[in-house]
Simulated assay, not measured.
Amino acid sequence: VIASGARYRRLDVANLAEFEGTSVHYWASPIEARLCRDQEVALVGAGNSAGQAAVYLASQVRKVTLLARRDSLNATMSRYLVERIEAQPNIEVQPETEIVALD
């Protein structure tokens, strides 16, 4: 077994380290879901991992805003996930969006 770890893409913003571990997380486990319960969360990404996280978090939080750089999820996400996201009333997709700062 080789467990070499994961390399997450990090946002290119100056003060990212200030928020990591407190309000910026790199996965959506039950721990993060508890931390965010009944809140509004923003999720950055448009691949299958982001889609799965959005669907999972939508069952735990008030609202998920999915921020995607492209104009559509269809090019980077499986069709079944796109359909599940479209069916969730508390998931809002913001296409053509980039994070430029954290405050």
Results as ranks from 00 to 15, higher is better:
R62N: 13
A14T: 08
V55S: 02
I2F: 15
V82E: 04
I31Q: 09
E86P: 01
V82Q: 11
G21A: 12
E96D: 08
P89H: 08
Y8A: 10
E86W: 03
V55G: 02
W27V: 01
C36A: 11
A50T: 01
V93T: 12
T65Y: 07
A42G: 06
R84W: 05
A53F: 00
A53S: 14
L11S: 00
V1K: 00
L73P: 01
R37I: 07
A33C: 13
V100H: 06
K63V: 14
N48V: 09
A14V: 10
S59I: 01
P30A: 00
R37S: 13
V24P: 01
P89W: 06
V93K: 01
R70N: 06
D38R: 12
P95L: 02
A53R: 00
E86R: 07
N90E: 12
I2D: 15
L81E: 05
S23D: 14
S29E: 15
N48M: 09
Q60S: 13
R9I: 08
Y80S: 09
I91Q: 00
F19L: 09
V13K: 04
S23H: 10
A58W: 09
S59L: 09
E96C: 09
L66Y: 01
Q39A: 13
V24A: 10
W27L: 10
L66Q: 01
L57I: 09
R84M: 09
V82N: 05
I2P: 14
R70A: 06
G5E: 08
L102V: 04
E20Q: 12
I91S: 02
N74T: 11
E98Q: 14
E40Q: 08
L73Y: 05
E92H: 05
Y56V: 08
R7K: 12
R7I: 12
A28E: 03
L43N: 02
G51S: 10
S29G: 15
A14E: 12
V1T: 04
I85P: 00
A58T: 07
E20W: 12
R70S: 10
I31L: 10
V13H: 04
S29R: 14
L43M: 03
E18G: 01
R10W: 02
P89G: 01
E32A: 02
L67V: 11
H25T: 08
D71S: 14
T76Q: 10
T97W: 04
I99Y: 09
N48S: 10
R7G: 04
R79K: 13
E98S: 15
Q94V: 09
I91W: 04
A46H: 11
L43V: 05
A53T: 01
S59Q: 13
A6F: 14
A54G: 14
L81Q: 11
Y8K: 11
A50Q: 00
L66D: 01
V24E: 09
V41G: 03
V82G: 03
R79C: 00
L43A: 02
V13A: 07
A17H: 08
A68H: 15
A58M: 11
R10I: 02
Q88L: 10
A42F: 15
G47M: 05
Q39R: 14
N74C: 00
L66E: 00
E98T: 15
A14Q: 08
E18M: 07
L81Y: 14
R7A: 09
P89D: 06
E86C: 00
E32M: 04
L16W: 07
D12Y: 10
V41S: 04
Y8T: 05
